[in-house]
Design a protein around this nucleic acid. Sequence first.
DNA 1: TATGAATGAGTCTTCATTCAT
DNA 2: AATGAATGAAGACTCATTCAT
Lengths: 183, 183, 183, 183
Amino acid sequence: MGAKGSQTKAMIRTEAYKLFAEKGFKEVTMKDICESTGLSRGGLYRHYAGTQEIFSEILSEEYSIADRIERHESAKTILEDMLQAIEKEIMEKEFSLSLAIYEYASMGNEDFFIRIHEKAKKRWIHLIQYGIETKEFQETDPDRVSDLILYYYQGLRMWSRVIPFDNRTAKYYAESVRQMLYL
Amino acid sequence: MGAKGSQTKAMIRTEAYKLFAEKGFKEVTMKDICESTGLSRGGLYRHYAGTQEIFSEILSEEYSIADRIERHESAKTILEDMLQAIEKEIMEKEFSLSLAIYEYASMGNEDFFIRIHEKAKKRWIHLIQYGIETKEFQETDPDRVSDLILYYYQGLRMWSRVIPFDNRTAKYYAESVRQMLYL
Amino acid sequence: MGAKGSQTKAMIRTEAYKLFAEKGFKEVTMKDICESTGLSRGGLYRHYAGTQEIFSEILSEEYSIADRIERHESAKTILEDMLQAIEKEIMEKEFSLSLAIYEYASMGNEDFFIRIHEKAKKRWIHLIQYGIETKEFQETDPDRVSDLILYYYQGLRMWSRVIPFDNRTAKYYAESVRQMLYL
Amino acid sequence: MGAKGSQTKAMIRTEAYKLFAEKGFKEVTMKDICESTGLSRGGLYRHYAGTQEIFSEILSEEYSIADRIERHESAKTILEDMLQAIEKEIMEKEFSLSLAIYEYASMGNEDFFIRIHEKAKKRWIHLIQYGIETKEFQETDPDRVSDLILYYYQGLRMWSRVIPFDNRTAKYYAESVRQMLYL
DNA sequence: TATGAATGAGTCTTCATTCAT
DNA sequence: AATGAATGAAGACTCATTCAT
């Protein structure tokens, strides 16, 4: 695969991302992607064998970005950075793959998401424990609180597609997390 | 519509429910429902014009049940009843329409769900305010806390389809809500 | 078949007539007729085995009426009566079965229409010959002129469904026929 | 669309023409056309979205041919050419789209035919006026006579599908028109 | 006679996928 | 690499027709 090929693949992913964000996973067809990219049937199939393959590459990209979050000094700084990132994501619902991810996961691709979820949970547990150690956070059960933080976030993320949010809703999230953690 | 007709319709809904719970909304076809019910194509269409119609009748049933929750004496009793109902629902994921509902809502049927959500939120706000008045609950912001309770629940409900929960996860929910509210 | 039965049949024909006039023969379904008459599927089938059967009975009625035209004294009087009847029919296009008849005839029922046409032609030839004898009409070829009169009429009748006529068009018909025949 | 594509489209039109001529518009299905052309369902739909689309392209071809009739020197020559073309068409009923056109027009596509009819009428009126000027034709009302010529032709054309014509019938048409026009 | 539930065949339409070019 | 024609399977939907009641 030469340089041109990987450029085309990247372009396909970019276009497909928009479609998945808009319509979820199940409703996007190879035909749709042909039309968005301007490629012919055969041309598209040369790069990707189906929507699953495209979507799973998009996800890998997504989550490798999610992993890139770096560590700062204080637990508080890290927390505030994370909250800010989440708030932004919730409000930019037009770019959210939440429906697509959920559909995809429900179609027999649970494993990938279990792994993602476990990773995310570990990160939160880590952070909470660290904050407790540095006396920045309350003494709480890190396992329980990370569950709350994660599923609350998932709930928000999902329904932001459906329910028109004012930014109060996103603010509440940050506030609730702070109340759970800060002294 | 005679007795036989409405029996058949009820049977169709029962079978369709299982399919929607299993595969979500988009993936269920009229053909699937034919096969599950043992009806012919024409026979099914005599009763329902499409999956949308069946699903929306199932939802109406569902939510009219959800509305039937009555009021008890103390805020605490009501809360515990609600938590128990939720816990049960999360663990019985095979009966959950969550994916189907989410897909259906995302397909241009937002209004119905906004209304449902508003109703549920009002119910929680009411309960929280009532608990504060009776000195059973802490002084909190009912709006914010009800958001947390609702979206956390939605997140759990959704991902319970995908992530294998131990009952710790459901217990955490109840515990977190209690911590947010009780003195 | 009791009195009630033949009443129901007559009612079915009346309703079906409207449908055939509106949509032609091919497009009318037994279901349509059920709905128009308010009868159930089984109820309708008890009386008629299909749209063909209904339509052919309607036609028999139609043409037995057409045959009922009586003879008057002078050729001129008879001609004027015929022209008037035709003019009326052309303008009342909403009651015209022309499309339905044409479709029906083209579906393997030619014989019936050939007979009808031959009868009509004979009638005109007769009239023209009679008029020539009584010196009311010009000496023309009755065979040729009756063709003109009949097919011109058919053309008008058909396209009156499609092309919006002013009554000039119908008047022209009468005028042309008069020019062909009168001295 | 490459050369192969437009060849296939032409082939589809050719085959569809035969079917429309044989069965009218309403009775021809995409499946029929698949079978005639030897194309698969998807293959056919790649070129045409439905019978309407195919038929309307066939009509455009038809009538663009009809428009191609050129002007000659004398009114008489032109008239005789026209009559000959018409006579030929009437006798070649197996190639006549008359039923199909009539059905199609009656299904809400009146406009197209009104325009066609108006054009044809204008052409006849022109010719008649020209013939009167050149003293080749009698002084008649061009409007009225063109109506006669056109609707007589339509009537003939239609019923030639149903009634077995001897060529006398077609000859009569020409003769009648001549009698109406020539001195 | 009449009802309306049910059947099954038929048509429409869309897609994933393949393949010759 | 890319095109776009073609396939065939799948699903939606409609109807004529039958049958138990």
